[in-house]
Design a protein around this nucleic acid. Structure first.
Lengths: 147, 147
DNA sequence: ACTTTGTTGAGTATATTTGTCAACAAAAGG
DNA sequence: CCTTTTGTTGACAAATATACTCAACAAAGT
């Protein structure tokens, strides 16, 4: 039941964008460095987000990517959905024909409950929630001690 | 976020055993046929369950495997734990040193909430719950129409 | 023009999953 | 005993998915 790097890196990418929301384009290269993700891989992660209209981009000097919506409007369920596909722990939840037992399988019901439980959390968490959580975690910098 | 065949097949195996709880040994070969799982693979799945004391076994003619406890006493969280390992969607929940960002990572908190949500369902579901669910799903057999 | 950035697609190394197979061990029956 | 039946173990391998890399390209700036 592990999340792949797509979901993990992708969420960190979007949190970075949310932290800079309204500041104009952020370069993928910067994010790659700060988040320690290879630039080439990050490019592939941002593609489906752009296609879905969650992120916008521009090329050329001073280009970069940014959130197309406000961080309040982006739920983690959308993010995970775009990057990992469904949260269903078993394929038969999305497609009952994936398994001939779907009609009378008792275990399938439990996996459905597990999915609902996960979705509940992801539906109720937005990028803004992550931003606020991140800000409260921010390590005090050296500068903050010299006010 | 998919469950592997270990978790899926293993749960079906245990449901079979729960349905025959108290009936003495059930042969792995039977279960393999009914559940359409290769015998060789099933053998590997049952090993950790035996090691954990959840299942018992005997060899030889009329041998087989059976539940070591009553179906009420076996929670799905234990089953998934044994077969899939932790339900943590990210490694840093089990081992904070798996990622240098653990201390100040906002996304980690959300994955922890997701894990708690899943665990809640798995903790509150026992093999007996599966048995009852399965019985209520049982297709009426031909014989049942001739009482 | 030229540089900087994002975009796309092909290719690949690695890891994980999902098995197979064969040798072995123990229980039961004759 | 001896044979058959079953579970046990470990080595191995095929298939798949993951996590990239790289190079060619496209567009935006200067």
């Amino acid at each position: 039941m592990k999340l792949s790097t797509r979901g993990r890196y992708g969420t960190r990418l979007l949190l970075e964008l949310a932290l800079h929301s309204g500041d104009g384009p952020v370069q993928l290269k910067e994010i790659a460095q700060r988040q320690d993700i290879s630039l080439g891989y990050l490019e592939h992660l941002v593609t489906p987000l752009i296609a879905a209209g969650m992120v916008r981009s521009t090329r050329g000097a001073h280009g970069g990517v940014w959130l197309a919506k406000s961080p309040w409007e982006i739920k983690l369920s959308e993010v995970v959905g775009l990057l990992e596909g469904s949260t269903a722990p078993v394929d038969c939840l999305n497609d009952p024909e994936a398994c001939p037992r779907s009609d009378f399988c008792a275990t399938r019901d439990v996996w459905a409950e597990v999915k609902e439980a996960m979705d509940g959390v992801l539906e109720s968490t937005t990028l803004q929630d992550l931003v606020e959580r991140q800000k409260s975690k921010q390590k005090p910098t050296e500068a903050m001690y010299h006010i």
